[in-house]
Amino acid sequence: MSIILDHVNYIYSKGTSDEVKALDDVSFEIPDGDFLGLIGHTGSGKSTLVQHLDGLLKASSGSIYFNGEDIYDRDYDMKALRGKVGLVFQYPEHQLFEEDVFKDVCFGPKNLGLSQKDTELAAYRALKDVKLPDELFYVSPFELSGGQKRRVALAGVLAMKPEVLVLDEPTAGLDPEGRNEILGLIKELHDKQGITIVLVSHSMDDVAEYADHIVVMDKGKVFMNGTPKEIFSHASKLETIGLSAPGVTYIMRRLKRAGFDVDTTAITVKEAADSIIRAVNHA
């Protein structure tokens, strides 16, 4: 199972004076079981890109292959694709609308055509997966806290049992603990259930901590594609497009220059601490 984007272009408002090339010759692969971090500043094309993955937007030209099948083929089952690729938008709690949490989570699987029983089973599993306490299953979604609402919205997508989960800035507006909870949950879905994750994020620290693979977007193009360590070793290149390496990476570079024998490829607090302790003990 993988997704391959092959020379994908997308033009907004084609043929008008407002024409914008939002995706410009985008080609890369999301392998099965990947944890992909998609980064880039506002307007770089990240959100446009992820909306292509479940067929919400159709490329102006180029191809997308899901499990080896061209999703723009005439007889490709687009509806099934929407079930396989779950898209969690920014501030997804704005899309909660049913009278209670459980009904809201049932909406997706019911729409996919599952039986009443299977729908309820899927909804129950999904709410368990996001660790929502049982006593909240039948309250109005509007009575929940910000972090809880976000988990319900995530459950609504999980209930469709996606193979790929695409999350557009899932931690925006949450407090630090809420951010940890959501990211921990996503990591668990990836590690335990093998779901492929595409995480759109503004936080270099989060991407460094969780992703196995990073694609950097700029002006609709793929600017860089590699492992977190490869990507973040090019801090000054990232700075030219308004991004940066994680904060600890800069500390490590300065320590190296000051004479400490530390690893400048450290990108998380844990890696940095390990390396500094080692350097001090060796000296």
Partner: peptide, 15 residues
């Protein structure tokens, strides 16, 4: 209280 400290502060505390 569901909060944390800046990353640099966290690294210093860990060390």
């Amino acid at each position: 209280l569901r909060l944390t400290v800046p990353q640099t502060t966290k690294l210093a505390a860990e060390l």
